[in-house]
Every structure is written in C-alpha cells, then in structure tokens.
Amino acid sequence: MELNSIKPASGAKHAKRRVGRGIGSGLGKTAGRGHKGQKSRSGGYHKVGFEGGQMPLQRRLPKRGFKSHLLKYNAEVTLGELQALGAAEVDVLVLKQAGLIPQLAKVVKVIKSGELTSKVVLKGIGATVGAKAVIEAAGGSLAE
C-alpha cells in the first residue's frame, strides 16, 4: 500500500446533487420539484400533519383518557412484599428505606396479591378491602 493509492471505501463518498444547473445535468429547469403547486415554490410548504385543508386525522379522532399528575406520589405494596419485609410495624418511612416504594411517594396502599401469615400493624398506610381482610385474619391491624 502506498500513500498515493489510498482511497475511501466504495460508496462512502458521493457527489452532492446540484439542482437547477441546466438541461444536461438532468435536474435543470424545475430542479426536480415538478410543475407548479405549493411544493414547487420557494419557502412554500406546510406543517406536519397538514392534509391540504382537510380536517387532519389528529383532530378528527376524539380526545380520550387522562393521566393524573399526582400518580407519581401514589404507590402500592403487595401482601407478599409485606411478608418478605418481616417488620411488625410498617409505615411509609420503613417502606421507603426497604426500597419497596419510591422516595417521592406520599400515599401508599396495600393490595391483595401474595400471601401474608405474619402479624403486621400498618401505620398511615391504606389497604384494599381484600387486603384488609387478609391482614386482620393474620392478626394484624390498620392504624390510619
């Protein structure tokens, strides 16, 4: 290999398309823009989603759903996670330290998922009807 024989890989470099430079170039006169219309004019185009004046799809479809901005402050804990935690008294701080709920969480609720056999006292934590029944059956209680 010699310095004067080094070349870039084939297809790595290609000439930029020079439009509007005469008939011989193949892109003279209209410069690949076709004849007339908004797309052929300089500075003339439309915004994303524009459908030529027809009501755009995004506006034709109904608005649906809602995502609460308070969701990041809500958290849930399963009965199985409480069992694995093995603490007699559980409050929000204990759950945060164990890493079961995010640090931002303010409202915590226990849901009925998994088994609970040990006695657990919940302080400042809510529970679903089913979860409450399981906790009380295991000898625990909810101190709101």
Rank of each mutant, 00 (worst) to 15 (best):
G32Q: 05
V107I: 11
T128F: 02
L79R: 02
A87H: 08
E81S: 13
A88D: 12
G34Q: 06
S10C: 01
G80F: 03
A105C: 07
V107D: 10
G53K: 05
E51M: 09
H35K: 15
L100E: 08
G44L: 06
G124S: 04
H46D: 11
V92P: 06
K119T: 12
K7T: 14
L95Y: 00
K106M: 09
A137I: 04
V48F: 10
K96L: 09
L71D: 15
L70W: 07
G11D: 03
R18N: 15
G11Y: 02
E136N: 13
Q103I: 05
S118A: 13
Y73M: 05
G37H: 04
H69R: 13
R60N: 07
G22R: 04
I6Y: 08
I6Q: 10
P56A: 00
L27I: 15
K47A: 14
N4W: 11
Y73R: 09
K132P: 00
A12D: 06
V92W: 01
D91M: 04
V94G: 11
K132H: 10
T117A: 11
K67M: 09
G43I: 08
I111S: 05
G32W: 01
R59I: 12
K13R: 13
R60Q: 12
L95I: 08
R21C: 09
S10Q: 05
A87Y: 03
R21N: 11
L70R: 14
G140S: 02
R18G: 14
Q97K: 15
G24M: 13
S42H: 15
I23C: 05
I6T: 09
I125R: 03
Q83M: 05
P8G: 01
G34E: 06
N74V: 02
M55S: 05
S68E: 10
A127T: 04
T30G: 09
D91A: 01
V94H: 08
L142F: 01
G26R: 10
A98V: 02
H46K: 11
K39S: 14
T128H: 00
H35R: 15
G124T: 06
A127D: 05
G11P: 02
L95P: 06
A143R: 15
F50A: 06
A84E: 15
S141M: 10
F50L: 07
G11W: 02
G80E: 09
R17H: 14
Q58Y: 07
L57F: 15
V129Q: 11
K109M: 12
L85R: 01
A12R: 10
V77G: 01
R41D: 05
I135M: 01
A105R: 09
K29E: 09
G126Y: 04
L93Y: 00
V108T: 07
R33P: 07
M1K: 10
P62G: 13
A88Q: 13
G140H: 00
E2A: 13
V94P: 03
A105L: 10
S25V: 09
A105W: 06
K132G: 06
S40L: 06
L61T: 08
V108R: 03
